[in-house]
Design a binder for these strands. Structure first.
Lengths: 192, 192, 192, 192
DNA sequence: AATGAATGAGGTTTCATTCAT
DNA sequence: GATGAATGAAACCTCATTCAT
């Protein structure tokens, strides 16, 4: 599908240059089409980014629904979500860079896809944290804030670090990050 | 000093619009001077941002030097640095938003100030973590990666959350974040 | 006939937006066909307008021929022509708006249909005026100029006013305009 | 004044090509400046036309105020206004062409200058016609409609004819048009 | 005949930077 | 030092037209 082909090439450039420094001409050239042809597939430059975020949000929403029904400790689900996230990262580093960077771009908060992505995912973390607290799996904490912190930690880590690293490093980073978050929230009492 | 006046006003706009969507005209108007006058104080638009980052990096470097000589548990120093960071945030929210957002902007990585800011601070965390590990204050961890994770966590949290919140919320966020990081790195053994 | 269907829909849009602001896509969408299909019926966008003008010119030419053979005062023929014109206006307001507006568009003067429409109709008025003068039906006047004035008056009135008015107003406008023109040209002597 | 220089050159092109077919580049080139410089003087392409109409409306409004205070037959004032109009036409044919043509352009009706021009002038004719009727200077007629007809007649005549004619013809056209309008409205009774 | 994705020239507008005053 | 009009490259987007299906 041509539309997806454009998205793929757009992500490459967006990852490297950032949204504001990516021109429609760059995208069209990389995609091997005329500038005008971009507009037969997307209403505007914005719409390309929106499409990317919508897509990725949907993927995550589906996975989260799947997680919700899983029978395991709630807190493990955050680890699983991290796995999912890092798998994606392994497969498409540029995509993650774009998601992470532009989701913090103030000029793009009007896009539905971006809004969903930045608002819904923390809500997921929050609900997991709340259930894990009820179950005594983790220490008492402010679910709202901590959910945002986790979201931010993941976002920041991916942006600042993972994007620059070699593939073989990813596994190490993931392990470190999981341990980091796990310790951060876990119920210290059970060690006593 | 006129130069500092420009910086102050520039930060206000940069925080709200992002670097790419901030024009030199906006800055000059807000600063109450002519566009041309910007260029008697700064070589270019870039240079304004560079100046901001240089400034802030120096402030942190000074504080870090001061911390290094302090006699206390190494791990407490991260907490202190967080305090310092959040005090700044309380005083100048816009500034923090700019630092955090633009330090992740790929188009600005050529600026000396930005480079120092993003490279040197993790090095500081790393050195603290290493010493704290030697001292048995914290669990064994990959100092490199964890330093980056902490940097990213702070960066992400400020950008995604602190910037939007009311002042009275800041204290709560800071406490939550300190506990989060503290737990994440601390030596679980001591609970046994 | 498909061709006429396209014309009909094109007129609707042309009336509302003007030629330059009417796109081939708009026309094709309104006509319920693909853009490409426009070009199986018409050589170009221009050609659509040309076809409209050709059509309407022919209608008028036929009516004028019919008038020429009529046995009545010459000057009454202008009134009759006005009736014919306003009947058309009553039936298809959009069409009249297009004819009137685009016949004054300098970028369309190269179209045969447009040229005929703007050049031939005044000639008709002129010939009537000349005969009416010979017959002493009207005052002495410059037939050339007055013919143009009448044409312009009709054109201007339709464009500026008739197009905006309610249907029930049309009759009033027509009466007023006929009286206006009639008085303007009539032989004052006969009142003495 | 540079702004007026741009207007002058813009009018030349607008007269020849029409608004939609006049590009900002054409205007800037003819005015001997860079494209971007247009925008230091005008907010947009629209604004150039608006400026033209505002200007001309003001000129007419001033003259009309002057006419109102004149002591003479009301109906003579329309003749005077025609004189004023044709004097302008003699001095700047292109300007008149633009005023006349674009005042009928549906895509420009949102401009304040255009609105004033097309709405206020007929109101002036109307008020003259009403007073002239009270005074028995002219026959009984619908002042509203006739005012519009006169406005349209002038507009149409200028556009369709005067714009194309040689200067020496103008005087003839003006005389013919004055007589035309005069007869059209005058009180036939006085001839009895 | 009908389609509609693809084209690319060309439209309007923005903006960092310069320079004569 | 300060000014702000002028610059022109480059941004996003439109649209009449074509052509493979």
């Amino acid at each position: 599908m041509k539309k997806e082909q454009i998205i793929l090439k757009a992500i490459e450039i967006l990852a490297k240059k950032g949204y504001a420094n990516t021109t429609t001409r760059m995208i069209s050239e990389r995609a091997g089409i005329a500038v005008g042809s971009l507009y037969t597939h997307f209403k505007s430059k914005d719409a390309i980014l929106d499409h990317i975020f919508q897509n990725e949000y949907k993927k995550r929403a589906v996975y989260i629904d799947h997680l919700k029904e899983k029978e395991c400790k709630h807190i493990e689900k955050i680890g699983m979500f991290l796995d999912f996230h890092f798998d994606e990262l392994g497969e498409n580093r540029d995509l993650m860079t774009v998601l992470v960077r532009e989701s913090a771009n103030p000029e793009l908060q009007h896009l539905d896809g971006v809004k969903e992505f930045t608002e819904q995912l923390p809500l997921f973390f929050k609900s997991i944290l709340e259930k894990a607290m009820e179950n005594g799996e983790i220490r008492k904490l402010n679910a709202d804030l901590t959910a945002e912190i986790i979201f931010s930690t993941i976002r920041g880590t991916v942006c600042g670090m993972a994007a620059k690293s070699e593939i073989q490093e990813l596994e190490k980073i993931k392990k470190e990050l999981k341990k980091f978050i796990n310790n951060a929230v876990k119920n210290q009492e059970e060690f006593k």
